[in-house]
Design a protein around this nucleic acid. Sequence first.
DNA 1: CACTTTTTTAGAATCATTATAAAGTAGACT
DNA 2: AGTCTACTTTATAATGATTCTAAAAAAGTG
Lengths: 132, 132
Amino acid sequence: MKYIEKLRNSGLRPTKQRLQICEVLFDTETTFHFTINDLANKIKRQLNHKISLATVYNTVHAFEKKGYLKQIPINSNQTYFDTNISDHHHFYDLKEEKLIDLENSDVGPIKILKKIGGKKIKSVEVLVKLED
Amino acid sequence: MKYIEKLRNSGLRPTKQRLQICEVLFDTETTFHFTINDLANKIKRQLNHKISLATVYNTVHAFEKKGYLKQIPINSNQTYFDTNISDHHHFYDLKEEKLIDLENSDVGPIKILKKIGGKKIKSVEVLVKLED
DNA sequence: CACTTTTTTAGAATCATTATAAAGTAGACT
DNA sequence: AGTCTACTTTATAATGATTCTAAAAAAGTG
Ligand SMILES: [Mn+2]
Ligand SMILES: [Mn+2]
Ligand SMILES: [Zn+2]
Ligand SMILES: [Zn+2]
């Protein structure tokens, strides 16, 4: 399996659940945005059995810490994650409550002119809210 | 009182609680970022009595809907609001878990080149995460 | 196989937020 | 002022996403 090494190299044991979650998350044509609940449903649908919700939470957080997933800063009652870990931004359609990728090339270069002493920039994320 | 008109013009009755929350929010030298809980504590401290938490929630949401407050898109277990309603952005210090204003002039102009049919851009918000 | 450590799991706990519904208040009109 | 109505406040309950717990299962090691 192609994810066994990836997990081992991250210090995560390649359990059946983690490998299955890898398939659902990463064996896809395109990247996508999801909440934990979205993912739990997708797993049940695709694999025809459920993985404990606690495991889904644990795994998503582990993958996020390892950099295999990104959290999207947005105000929602649920946390959104992204399988697209490239440097990119988002439209948020307020009516549809949907996220849409904005590639870095779709946004001009962003210059941060202000500096905070002793701190480094870890990420720059743009959220563009859309209305009708 | 200077907030009576403001509230009336928004279709909000100028109640004692709303006027007091206006004072705490807007009678300040500088703008600030807060959670509902921060605000409830600030009220108790500054006014020496408490306003029901439900009223604080109701009022903050009413003010946000009227445009007197902005919600800051950030992943936290609590929702952050901003009394600075100007077009501006934020640093988020991951270590200190603090928000810092980034004036629009501190960030170069942002060009959104991608368009979504039938949708208008309502806001463009940049979140710059800081680490040590 | 033993043994240790990590992981999974169901269910409970937490806690920010929202809903409920009864009591209070503001505004309008006699 | 008093009456009426719609809006607001409030304590409290309900909701629901997330985290915690602790016991059972699985993984890795030799
Ligand atoms: Mn969240
Ligand atoms: Mn929130
Ligand atoms: Zn994305
Ligand atoms: Zn701000």
